[in-house]
Amino acid sequence: MRVILNTGRTIRQGSYVERKTSADYMEEAASLNMNRMDMFELAVEDGNHIRVRSDHGEVVMKARAVEGLIRGQVFVCLGPYANHLVGPETHGTGMPDFKTTQVTLEPTTDPVPTIRELMERCGGVGYED
């Protein structure tokens, strides 16, 4: 399924932003907020894993049904999961397209990576707090 990824702040993301190693932060940052009908069509339920792919990367996230999103749009709070998909092009403004990334969704049973694993994929060395 092809959809548009929007990102932004949420109160839970803000609450845990200074504790990025916490399970709470990971839960919020790796949640793929979706319209129920889109979930129905993909045959996934709350908490099921979804592989999200863009031209710039791919990452496994957890589906979460929310009100207020129209079909064809998904929302992920700003953070390392969303940014695994956002491209770096800024069109001469310094600002990437954080709110309009085309992505495809596919159900999977693969695990959701931790933030440490995501950063290791970027070439980093994980630090255990």
């Binding site: 990025k20 940052a29 710039h56 990367g57 700003l78 953070g79 390392p80 940014n83 695994h84 998909l85 956002v86 491209g87 770096p88 990437p96 933030i115 950063m119 970027c122 070439g123 980093g124």
Partner: peptide, 16 residues
């Protein structure tokens, strides 16, 4: 925290 808030390509360069 640019690792979390910049696109992945930028995080990769920070690691290099």
């Amino acid at each position: 925290d640019p690792g979390a808030h910049f696109p992945r390509a930028c995080a990769e360069h920070l690691a290099r």
